[in-house]
Write a protein that binds this DNA or RNA. Structure first.
Lengths: 246, 246
DNA sequence: CGCAGATTTGAATGCAATCAACACTGGTGG
DNA sequence: CCACCAGTGTTGATTGCATTCAAATCTGCG
């Protein structure tokens, strides 16, 4: 599988290139970043709420999410993260974590000390802009999720999420065709969309019955991209990816 | 009224000081920023979705919101902004607006050219970090709203928003006591919380009956801050303000 | 095989939307 | 000055989407 052939640094560079132009010297500076690679089992916190981390966490393999739990135990997932993402980049300038970062699957992650990031940004200010841009895109995705949670039907919302994940995965080469492997349980999808697992299940069936999606198990296929896009009112502008496929 | 005695630059500096330490030379650099002041009537777009602005917009007086409208006309408000905020700071690094910025009240705003901002950040990198931090706090607020929309009851959600607004207003001196003037209609509150205006009305009455809030007209008072905080599970950490009152 | 976690299905409940009036408010023009 | 009017707020009745509870499959794995 192609994804495994990339080094941590290559993964990060590929991600950055998916959202911005990266100069040769910036690429080299990133390649020199110290990255401490670690394996992490499924369903464990990479960075818990309340923590004051001194390093940022690069996703190398597997999937992570950012979430909060309420007092009654209910959970809200605020973001999914895939290879190349640095989910807690915000900790560079927000000392204390106001949410948790956890693994959804077994993962390989790399920790990059804040110090090293500050330094590379000082020497390559353009990289600072790119990292800043990355956090701004995260924020844009939060906004889009707000629209979904607030105003879209569960069907549209779920379809919209599938569109988003597909575009993001394609942007960093995690999938080539119209197939995406959903590494999340229906419970996790529900926690992200403010729905119960039961309802997620029914909604997925609706979408399949409408021919909007196909696939079985944790694989989803998109037989008609234009149709799914139209149904969910998906407009990829908010992802601000550099080159959009289709 | 105290709020009117501050110049645009003073407003901006006050805001930045509410979220970070600002050095003397940074303060002076901000004070030299060119700001083109303009009055804007109620309910008009400051920056429409799809635009590619070349300046950022500083709120000097009045209230603004960021929003998207769906095809069927329903609207989702994603953020409220008050004096001192720069709601479209993200346009520094995201060329195209993926949402609209509009006035909720008559406003006085100031436009600061991107060029000038880039320049001041180049000469005072610490300011770059503060502006970056500001956008990160915006993102943290989006995340908190996601929790509200996804997992909180309408009552908790509305109470939580009141807590948030109160803390933000106090941080920049827009209110001293436990009273806040809500410059929004119930329809607008609903658009922010994913609720219908009718339901917002009933929920507000619930909160009043429970003694969680008081006030009439568009004024809301908080008779018992601790009680409201507990009810809405409000934890101000996510606002990352420098010094919290109470 | 047996088990735990995940998915699926059904039935009942409940929260919030919608629809429809009506009351209140502030501003405008006759 | 007052009547009118549009926008906002309030109330009631009905509908519907999604939750909850419960139980029955299905799946992968030790």
């Amino acid at each position: 599988m192609l994804s495994n052939t990339l080094s941590p640094h290559e993964r990060l560079i590929l991600k950055l290139e998916s959202i911005a132009d990266v100069t040769q010297s910036e690429r080299e500076a990133v390649a020199r970043l110290p990255i401490a690679v670690r394996e992490v089992p499924q369903d464990t916190d990479l960075v818990p709420e309340g923590d004051t981390p001194s390093a940022c966490c690069l996703v190398i393999e597997g999937y992570a999410c950012r979430y909060k739990v309420l007092r009654d135990g209910r959970r809200q997932i605020m973001a999914f993260h895939m290879a190349g993402d640095v989910p807690d980049l915000q900790s560079l300038h927000l000392k204390v974590m106001d949410h948790s970062l956890g693994s959804l699957t077994p993962m390989v992650v790399g920790f990059i000390p804040h110090e090293a990031l500050h330094e590379v940004i000082r020497s390559e200010p353009g990289l600072g802009s790119i990292f800043w841009r990355d956090t701004l895109i995260d924020a844009a995705i939060f906004r889009e999720w707000l629209v979904g949670l607030g105003r879209r039907t569960a069907q549209q919302q779920l379809a919209h999420l599938i569109c988003e994940l597909l575009v993001k995965m394609r942007a960093v080469g995690l999938t080539q065709d119209e197939t995406l492997v959903l590494p999340f349980t229906q419970q996790e999808l529900g926690d992200a969309q403010g729905l119960s697992a039961v309802h997620v299940n029914r909604v997925l069936q609706d979408l399949k019955n409408e021919g909007l999606i196909g696939g079985a198990r944790n694989t989803i296929t998109v037989p008609d991209w234009a149709k799914l896009k139209a149904f969910s009112e998906f407009d990829p502008t908010y992802l601000h990816v550099r080159r959009l496929a289709a």
